[in-house]
Design a protein around this nucleic acid. Structure first.
Length: 362
DNA sequence: TCCGTCGGATTCTAAACCAA
DNA sequence: TGGTTTAGAATCCGACGGAC
């Protein structure tokens, strides 16, 4: 089932959370379920979020745990990343090249590059002794030995960063769950309506009439789980095309800065790896020296901090402190709101005026 | 396209800490 | 004393630039 056009895709590894093209008819619930009984709340029901009003976008926290699953329903974990296995000791050639080595001698890489004769184990440096530490922080564990991350480090779970609303829109009340709606970012061109586009768009290809939220729309989660009280559809407030370009642009810049990785679709935690590097010759030399200095005698490495500001550090700083361009060119492609992802022509499925719990059993 | 280079994330592991 | 935690040290992923 493709996503509705206004929906951002779920995080990697999550199943589609928008399961029905038409809200399921309660009269046709699971025939296996006992008469008149709702499925148990522990069943894999997902919170379904109806399409936002035309012209609106849901804003999702980039790091929202479990979204879009309601509280109490464990979200399926993406397949765990395979742990990298290291060899006990890389050969000197691989170590200097920062390349994968293996246990064999000569190792595969040395054979490949004709370095078999020089493929020898390096010497592991002895660990320094007598280093004092601060008091231990005991990890909170369950009876089965599993860690409880929330109980660590003060026990407070970090709230997901809340994107600032555009100018003129109230900040969602503290604690309000995602998603909530914002007007589209500057430059957004709604997908052309088609026969399946049941969001009220004019059929002649004109862009949909935008709607803007009342404060009541913020943070309105359409909780959908068995036993949940029915929720009224929030009122839609039509507004003029007042999406002031300036205002939108401001919102664009302010909102995109901290979460640009997410907005680029790089929602993976490895997004930081995508950064570019400059490779100045000086930096190379100095960092190389710094790396080599690791192998220097302990006396050299145990110099106090003031002595540690070696050229390597300076070079690194130089590279890092490249001046950023002061003025940013206007963004043609809008990716202003975390979680907002442009999608292909929409298949807006929710057509009813009332939200219905959309459920998907796995 | 291949290869060298290298920043930094990830992993390993030994020393320090701590409870029993 | 043995298990746990911490952090130093090593590995190597992945991106880049240069050579061919």
């Amino acid at each position: 089932m493709p996503y509705a056009g206004h929906y951002p895709p779920p995080p990697p590894g999550y199943p589609p959370f928008y399961a029905y093209s038409v809200p399921p008819d309660p009269a046709h619930h699971d025939p296996n379920a006992p008469n008149g009984t709702a499925p148990p709340a522990v069943a894999p029901f997902y919170m379904a979020v109806p399409p936002p009003p035309p012209g609106m976008f849901y804003v999702l926290p980039p790091s929202a745990p479990g979204y879009p699953y309601p509280t109490g329903v464990p979200a399926p974990q993406p397949p765990p990343k395979q742990k990298r296995k290291q060899v006990k000791m890389a050969c000197t050639n691989c170590a200097s090249a920062c390349k994968r080595c293996d246990e064999a001698r000569p190792c595969e890489r040395c054979i490949k590059y004709g370095l078999a004769e020089t493929c020898i184990d390096g010497v592991r440096k002895e660990r320094k002794k007598g280093i004092k530490r601060g008091p231990y922080k005991r990890k909170n564990r369950t009876a089965s030995g599993e860690e409880l991350p929330s109980a660590v480090e003060g026990g407070e779970q970090q709230a997901a960063p809340v994107p600032p609303p555009p100018p003129g829109y109230p900040v969602p009340p503290e604690g309000y769950p995602f998603p909530y709606m914002y007007p589209p970012p500057m430059g957004y061109v709604p997908a052309p309506p088609d026969a399946q586009h049941s969001d009220g768009s004019p059929p002649n290809g004109a862009p949909p009439q935008p709607f803007y939220p009342t404060p009541a729309l913020y943070g309105y989660p359409y909780g959908a789980y068995p036993g949940a009280p029915p929720m009224p559809y929030p009122p839609l407030v039509p507004a003029p095309m007042a999406a002031s370009p300036n205002g939108a642009a401001k919102a664009d810049t302010s909102a995109s800065a901290p979460t640009s990785a997410a907005t680029n679709g790089a929602t993976s935690p490895d997004a930081s790896k995508g950064k570019k590097r400059s490779r100045g010759k000086n930096g190379d030399e100095s960092s190389r020296a710094a790396k080599k200095s690791k192998e220097s005698p302990p006396d050299a490495t145990q110099q106090p901090a003031n002595g540690a500001t070696a050229p390597a550090t300076v070079g690194a700083v130089d590279k890092e402190q490249q001046p950023q361009p002061q003025s940013q060119p206007p963004q043609a492609t809008p990716a202003a709101y975390p979680g907002h992802v442009e999608t292909n022509p929409p298949v807006t499925a929710f057509s009813g005026p009332e939200p219905r719990p959309l459920m998907a059993a796995m």
